[in-house]
Structure formats: C-alpha cells, structure tokens
C-alpha cells in the first residue's frame, strides 16, 4: 500500500494541484460517472467525490472511490457528518483505506431538509472539526474517538477540510480555518469562487495568520454554463456569493457558455498568482467534459508526474 497520496506528493513537490469533482448518480449505474473520470484522467491529480451532496441520495462517495481505485485513479473521499455517527464514520474510513483511498475531505454536510429525503433524521453526532480530529487521532495516535485502540496502524491518510470565504461572519472565516488546521486539516478546498475580491481579502487574513504555510489551499472553481445556472447559485445554493456584475457579464455575452468558461479560466489564472493558493478544485457540475479544456487553457497541462 502507498504511504502517501498522489495529491499530497503534488503539493509537497511544489506543484499547483488540480482536482476534479465527480458527483455520483442516483442509481448504481456508474457508467457516466466513470466516463467523466476517464475524460479528465490526464488532466487532474485526484477526483473529489461528493457525499450525497445537497442531501440527495446517490451512490456513496466510498462506492465510487472503490471503482476509481480499481481503475488506477486517485479519489478524495468526501465524508459529511450529516448521515453517519462516529461509529459509522470511523468504520467507513477504515473500509475506504482498506481498498486504497488515502485522501479524505471532512465536512459538515448540507442540512437534510434541502434534499430528497426531507423527513430524514440528521445525525450530526460529530461536527466537521471533530471529524477532522478523529481522523488525525486514528492516524497519529492509533485511537478511536472513544479511546479504544486500532489493531493496526492506519496508513498515512491525507486529511482535508472545507473553507467558505463567502460565509459569515466574514472576519471569523480565517480563524475558522485556523481551528480546522489545529484539529488536523492538511489541505482545504474552498467554496466556489465567483467574488474574487472577497476571496483575496480572505486570503490576506489567512496569510496574516500564517495559515498558508500550514495547510494546502485549493480554490474552488465552477464554470457557469448559463444565466439560469448563475441565478440559481446566486439565489438557491447556501453559502455562495455570485456577484450581480458576473451575472450581467454572462447575460451580455453573445456566447454565454463561452463567457462562463472564460471567467472560470481567468479565475484559475488569478488563483495561481495569489500567494498561499496551492491548487484548484474544479467543480464542473453537469459539465464535466469541459474540465480538460479548462485545465489546458489555464496553463496547467500536462500534469507533472510525481513519485
């Protein structure tokens, strides 16, 4: 078994990392998901797989991760605290490590009343910070949350967290990242960036606290396909800021898809210039086939090889 994830090696070698998001389907047929994964195989360093995103039932993140590992692709397994208690979270982590998953992104998860099972019981036994710490304690100290010991050491998993510079209270958001780092986060993925000014202000705070030297930060980028998509994210997706100026820019363009794509590429280029940003996470939701073009046009292709 590998001792270090490809993603971690990429960061450690000083490369600007690229990950792509895969959203599992509402069925056990993974043909389309795996097809998307193949399309971006040479363009991303790892695949981030969502865990019942927006509280909609889908194939599990771990299920897709197993399929990727079989195909020689590296997953970043998302784990939310919404659906599983500490017993299941820890058990699933062990299960995923057993087939070779090494990157785990620990997050709270959208509340259950957003999705297609609004009558569900929201678990939230651990919160995201506690989950990060639980994974770290399993790996570094060989202990479970309850204090019992693992029978064998956990391979070196790479612990991720999320950060949202577009949530409030804004002045607390860098401190919140500091807390997650203290809990054990080693890489962080941000909410989709559409308001670059606010993102840069947040990065200033991050640098003031020296956090960019303690954690690998991946900016979240989503290409906008249409005015409708922009409006939807502006009004319906929690924790997002889509500036009106951007909506108008896309609205005013002759080729709206192309304009959305241009903005995403501009964003990635700008991210590469910001001190303390170590990579990009591309969330091309329902537009996965565009990922190779984005990576190429952002000057991030070919992907470097690391050992």
């Amino acid at each position: 078994m590998k001792t270090e994830s490809n993603l971690e090696k990429m960061f450690n070698a000083g490369h600007f990392a690229v990950t792509g998001e895969l959203g599992p389907p509402k069925s056990a047929n993974l043909e389309t998901t795996l097809h998307h994964a193949e399309e971006m195989r040479n363009h991303v360093d790892a695949y981030n797989i969502t865990d019942n995103q927006t509280a909609i039932v889908r194939t599990s993140s771990i299920g897709v991760a197993a399929n990727l590992v079989q195909r020689g692709m590296e997953p970043v397994v998302q784990m939310t605290c919404r659906d599983r208690n500490r017993i299941c979270l820890q058990a699933d982590l062990l299960g995923a490590v057993s087939f070779g998953a090494l990157n785990f992104l620990c997050l709270q998860g959208d509340h259950g009343n957003f999705g297609n099972e609004t009558g569900c019981k929201n678990v939230y036994d651990l919160d995201s910070t506690q989950l990060i710490q639980a994974v770290k304690n399993m790996r570094d100290d060989g202990v479970f949350v309850g204090g019992d010991k693992l029978e064998h050491p956990l391979p070196k998993v790479f612990i991720g967290a999320v950060a949202n510079p577009f949530a409030d209270p804004f002045e607390y958001r860098a401190l919140r990242l500091a807390k997650k780092i203290a809990a054990g986060a080693e890489f962080v993925q941000t909410q989709c960036i559409f308001d670059l000014d606010r993102f840069e202000k947040w990065m200033e705070q991050v640098r003031e606290l020296g956090l960019h030297k303690k954690v690998k930060i991946m900016g979240g980028v989503t290409p906008i396909k249409s005015v409708g998509a922009a409006r939807y994210m502006q009004n319906n997706v929690s924790g997002m800021i889509v500036p009106e100026e951007l909506v108008q820019r896309i609205k005013g363009a002759e080729d709206k898809k192309k304009e959305g794509l241009n903005f995403a590429i501009e964003t990635i280029k700008r991210l590469q210039e910001i001190e303390g940003v170590h990579g990009v996470h591309i969330m091309a939701i329902a537009w996965e086939e565009i990922v190779p073009e984005i990576v190429e046009r952002a000057g991030l292709y070919p992907r470097p090889a690391v050992n």
Binding site: Y124, T129, A167, K179, G239
Partner: peptide
C-alpha cells in the same frame, strides 16, 4: 444550530441566518 455544531458556524451561515 440546525446541525448542533460545537466548533463554530458552518459554511451555510450568511447574513446572520441559517442555511435551513
């Protein structure tokens, strides 16, 4: 807190309101 969090606000907190 809709998610009974113990360590600060989640990413769904905006303009003092809960994502729920």
């Amino acid at each position: 807190c809709s998610k009974s969090m113990m360590n600060g606000p989640c990413g769904g907190s905006q303009e003092e309101k809960c994502e729920v």
